[in-house]
Design a protein around this nucleic acid. Structure first.
Length: 396
DNA sequence: TCTGGGGTCCTAGGACCC
DNA sequence: TCTGGGGTCCTAGGACCC
């Protein structure tokens, strides 16, 4: 019995938040993002999209395409609060909810719609109630796996509702361009085109044949992709709260520089941010990584693993500076970043401390074992010697 | 004014231990 | 004198997503 997995995606979320704050923005070309050096479009309204503006685009470019574009700086705290309202709304239907990002979630509606006669009408109603309660607009995808639900919510925006049954995979997804497939990005797309794969249907057919060229192109990802498009992907909605595996901050400098004091001040600021976030999350990290982007956008990482996990600002700063001095001291840089990795919970440190005693005990045991082993070997040698002596004596 | 910042996961080579 | 592999951890880079 297959599950009913739903993916709900808030349409142009950041822009919609701004429209809720200021309704006069509705039906106008609006972009959320920083308007300055390095600024890009984070999200844009559907009106702005008509001019060719899209997310990820440099802001100066967006302004060229749409000269009367209204630009709003990003207000992350405000968006987070609205996001919480949205997640709470979905959670009022089912506790089986997985927060995928600030503006989307998966939810398992199997039980909820068990006795529902008109499923599309049911989800239309959810859309309507969400809008009435929060003024947020969403697209809903319904399917038996997370991948298909995600593709379904993407199928029609804004305020779309798409249901993908197994028999709908071919007619709905196969005609789509390969770049529309979740997991296939701007690097893999041209590589797939080169081997004659231009649509999701092309990919599906080559998967059915276990095409060796395709398999070698995708590596380990191949079996996941094959499962996804054949409808055998994961249907597990992961309800455990997010547990960060790394905490990092980075910033693009006002101008490219190799100025020591600017760089040191920036690393100090980044270390402080990372430290305070790690402390808030109650995390300590074993590994400190720095990221350096050159003027030509070439990115370098350097990291080092330390014995005692930390979230101390000074320790993070010292390690970051050492890594920088050792590897990039004369480089003209555009961006700097600091990340704490290999995180452990601060509360586990207590266990680690008692583990320290345990390890000492182990070390002692290990020494004992070594001595015992040596003794055994010595005894054996002595025995061999003794037997040799005996032999020698016997030969006499 | 050219191209952000937050993440996750995978790969591949080298060091080191047994 | 020549010469094993298996496992794990660390490191650097890269692809992808929102």
């Amino acid at each position: 019995m297959s599950k009913v997995i739903v993916h709900i995606d808030l349409n142009a979320f950041f822009v919609r938040c701004e429209e809720i704050k200021d309704p006069s923005l509705e039906n106008k070309p609006v972009a959320v993002g920083h308007d300055g050096r390095g600024g890009i479009v984070s999200t844009c309204s559907y009106k702005a999209r008509e001019y060719g503006v899209s997310s990820g685009m440099p802001m100066f470019h967006a302004k060229k395409l749409c000269p009367h574009l209204i630009i709003k700086p990003s207000d992350y705290h405000y968006y987070s609060a609205l996001s919480d309202q949205f997640m709470a709304f979905v959670a009022s239907y089912t506790k089986k909810i997985e927060i995928a990002s600030i503006d989307e979630c998966f939810a398992d509606f199997t039980e909820v719609i068990k006795n529902e006669k008109d499923v599309p009408a049911f989800f239309r109603k959810i859309q309507k109630i969400l809008y009435e309660k929060t003024k947020l607009k969403c697209s809903i995808g319904v399917a038996s796996t997370k991948f298909l639900a995600k593709m379904a919510s993407d199928y029609k925006k804004p305020m779309g509702l798409t249901i993908i049954r197994k028999s709908d995979i071919a007619p709905l997804l196969y005609p789509l361009d390969i770049s529309k497939m979740f997991g296939i990005g701007k690097k893999t797309t041209p590589r797939l085109r080169e081997i004659g794969i231009n649509t999701i249907g092309d990919l599906a057919l080559r998967c059915q044949k276990d095409d060796p060229i395709l398999m070698s192109q995708l590596g380990k990802f191949y079996s996941t992709i094959k499962d996804w498009i054949s409808g055998k992907g994961s249907d597990e909605v992961i309800t455990t709260p997010w547990d960060p595996k790394s905490i990092g901050n980075s910033t693009t400098l006002k101008e490219d520089t190799n100025n020591k004091s600017t760089i040191s001040t920036t690393f100090r600021y980044l270390s402080k941010e990372v430290s305070s976030r790690a402390m808030k999350e109650n995390k300590l990290g074993h590994t400190i990584q720095i990221v350096v982007k050159e003027s030509d956008f070439k990115v370098h990482n350097k990291s080092t693993t330390i014995d005692n996990p930390t979230n101390n600002e000074n320790t993070i700063y010292d390690v970051a500076m050492r890594l920088y001095e050792k590897n990039f001291s004369n480089m003209t840089v555009r961006l700097l970043g600091v990340t704490l990795q290999n995180l452990i919970d601060a509360k586990d440190i207590a266990i680690q401390m008692s583990l320290f005693d345990y390890q000492q005990h182990e070390e002692e045991s290990a020494t004992k074992l070594l001595i015992n082993d040596l003794n055994r070997k010595l005894k054996k040698k002595a025995l061999i010697r003794a037997s040799e002596v005996e032999k020698h004596d016997g030969n006499k």
